[in-house]
């Protein structure tokens, strides 16, 4: 069946079997491989995309469900010059990337988190990315990258917690 939706700001039409997921549509039919597949059961977050402003696991969304809606993938997250935006730049600087397989999903989750909370706290950041698994980094440098972005966007530094 033909599915029409807005992908990264562009009207898109694609002919796919009706029982495939959005993840498969993106990767197998549009060759948009920035969105990764790690479990296909909605547990790892590697397949995260933004659907009408909300983070979703694209492996749990059926392709026909996106008809007429707006989808943003990692390929649509860029700075004004087409290079990395400030969040992506912070990921590089903070060492938030190792193998990089979770990175697109993390960037997607963090993008929505920042949009929703403006200046999220450490707790909110942790909550915001806790649906995204990373086996390499131990998360700390990912949290730091997001905190770095908050600061650069005008947020205030949080007081150091002491246990």
């Amino acid at each position: 069946m033909e599915i029409r939706f807005t992908l990264n700001g562009k009207p898109t039409a694609v002919d796919v079997p009706p029982d495939i997921t959005l993840l498969r549509l993106l990767r197998d039919y549009l060759d948009m491989t920035g969105t990764k597949c790690g479990c296909e059961i909605g547990e790892c977050g590697a397949c995260s995309v933004i659907l009408d402003g909300e983070v979703v696991n694209s492996c749990l969304v059926l392709a026909p469900q996106v008809e007429g809606r707006r989808v943003v993938t990692i390929e649509g997250i860029r700075g004004p010059d087409g290079g990395p935006n400030d969040l992506q730049e912070a990921f590089i600087e903070a060492g938030a990337i190792q193998c990089g397989f979770c990175t697109p999903g993390m960037v997607v989750a963090a993008t929505v988190l920042l949009r929703k909370h403006g200046y999220p706290t450490r707790e909110q950041i942790i909550e915001g990315i806790s649906g995204n698994l990373c086996r390499c980094t131990g998360y700390q440098q990912i949290v730091e990258a997001i905190q770095m972005t908050v600061l650069r966007r005008g947020g205030l530094p949080e007081k150091e917690e002491h246990a």
Partner: peptide, 11 residues
């Protein structure tokens, strides 16, 4: 790191 964070790196 760059191509990983942009999602353009191929696995």
């Amino acid at each position: 790191a760059l191509e990983k964070v942009l999602g353009t790196g191929r696995y």
